[in-house]
Amino acid sequence: MVNKIVSSSAAAVADVHDGATVMIGGFGTAGMPAELIDALIDQGARDLTIVNNNAGNGDTGLAALLKARRVRKIVCSFPRQTDSHVFDALYRAGEIELELVPQGNLAERIRAAGAGIGAFFSPTGYGTELAKGKETRVIDGRPYVLELPIYADFALIKALRGDRWGNLVYRKTARNFGPIMASAAKCTVAQVREVVNLGDLDPESVITPGIYVRRVVEIPAAARDVPVPGAAA
């Protein structure tokens, strides 16, 4: 019997090794698997390379992982935010490496890894600092930059519902990087608000087929998932 349900966040991330490349889903905090990140902090793996759109917000989630000095390098598109003070301080002190990638190239490089594409030519970034040193080619009169896939050892993502085969559905714009990261990692761990019975997810509506998912852990909606009336964005 296939059963990808694991009992706890701790069990779900127990084998993350030092030096691992870990993709973490989310756009800001929407879709960020905060409980899995907390478990990773407790687990203790260090010298990590993290792939995320941002570089942490406030002092929780990804920011807490950075603050615990577990991250050697971050690959992202938009580190600088009003509440990215943890990253900002590490970066200014030269204590974290940054690979800045245009957001669409970041997404497509992740997708390429999951799809078995060896490299692709993207028009994004041509002629800019972020394409320096990269191979370029003019195809049908348009210039492109060669971009390589981004593979990961682990992907930690958040979805709304999952079943024991690992099929997932997401919630609104919290989907963001989840489906592509799930396909690009050797071991994808999804935290879901609710585990449902096999067959309860409509096959027409499954967003991430279970083949991409190794582990599913149920984390019921936490207080921080509930929008606080009147809270600032």
């Binding site: 598109s77 900002d88 800045l100 245009p102 669409g104 028009p123 994004t124 800019t128």
Partner: peptide
């Protein structure tokens, strides 16, 4: 996307994709 200032933390987001897309 970037002022190029020495102490500025660069961030690009989706700007380069939108610009050419």
């Amino acid at each position: 996307w970037h002022t190029g200032a020495k102490d500025a933390i660069p961030a690009v987001g989706g700007a380069m994709d939108l610009a050419i897309g």
